[in-house]
Design a binder for these strands. Structure first.
Length: 275
DNA sequence: CGCCAGGGACGAA
DNA sequence: TTCGTCCATGGC
């Protein structure tokens, strides 16, 4: 499957901290699993190749996942009004915000709290290997992210065995709420951002940061500006701001989530060539 | 308020 | 190499 898509770089998009299941290959393509399917994605200029997907898969899943309908050129143009964003956008010009599955995003970001990206990736990978569905692609095996139904049978001790430590009971709580319908994607989608936050914060182990990441990366609440240590740093340095989240959201409004990703990627990864 | 949890990454010594 | 610190959340 080959498509034309502007403003997209697999590296910028898959390595900017929003997802944990894409692996860079020696040829700079990325292999990943989403929606129960494995694909390999590569891009030359604005020509994007998705190996392992046909047109049907694209219209039913990958198009939405890659946020292909959104005009990132326009978003970037608006954000470039801020001098700092201008720099950040130059550095991560191919970032697109993925529309990831809700339960996967929630559980992954619960695991992510107070941890590092390599560690998160290994925990999520083990979770998938143990409880996901085995998939084959180009002679290798991959695993889907397990369903809520499957996870509802997994115990706290089993989660602990994955290496998630004290987060194990949080995952149990999240899965329980998902499985019972007490927490539902459909409901959160209908809510305004503030109401959705209030609901999601009821899950054990979900604080401000995890909450904002989940709502931004899976439900498209783009007016959120998740603030981790890198974002706090950049806001403090450049905007003299003590409360990164509030400042970001009031500056960038409905583009907060996009601004956050450009700033995060730039502040965390550009240092070498930037000082 | 301060400290801890469970563990890997990362930077300093 | 080893040591200390970090990370984001809830419980105490």
């Amino acid at each position: 499957m080959i498509i034309k898509l502007d403003d997209f770089s697999p590296m910028h998009t898959f390595d900017c901290g929003q997802c944990f299941r894409w692996e860079r290959q020696s040829d700079e393509s990325y292999i990943g699993v989403a929606g129960g399917k494995v694909v390999k994605i590569s891009a030359k200029e604005n020509v994007v190749t998705i190996d392992g997907a046909d047109e049907n898969d694209f219209t039913s899943f990958w198009g939405k996942y890659l946020d292909t309908e959104r005009d990132y050129g326009n978003i970037k143009k608006k954000l470039r009004a801020h001098p700092l964003l201008d720099k950040a956008i130059d550095f991560g010009s191919g970032i697109r915000l993925l529309r990831q599955e809700f339960h996967e995003t929630l559980i992954s970001f619960i695991i992510s709290q107070r941890s590092s990206i390599p560690k998160i990736k290994s925990c999520v990978a083990r979770l998938c290997e143990l409880y996901g569905e085995k998939l084959e692609f180009e002679g290798k095996y991959y695993y889907s992210f397990p369903s809520v139904e499957t996870l509802s049978t997994v115990s706290e001790a089993d989660y602990r065995a994955l290496g998630v430590g004290y987060r194990a009971p949080y995952i149990v709580d999240a899965v329980k709420k998902l499985y019972s319908g007490e927490l539902s994607e459909e409901f959160l989608l209908k809510c305004d951002t503030a109401t959705a936050r209030k609901e999601l914060l009821k899950v054990h182990g979900v604080g401000d940061k995890v909450c904002d990441c989940v709502l931004l990366f899976s439900l498209g609440k783009y007016d959120l500006f998740p603030s981790d240590v890198w974002i706090k740093r950049v806001m403090e340095e450049s905007f003299d701001s003590l409360s990164a989240k509030e400042t970001g959201e009031s500056l960038f409004k409905e583009y907060s989530g996009f601004a956050q990703q450009y700033l995060f990627y730039w502040r965390k990864y550009s240092k070498d060539e930037n000082v």
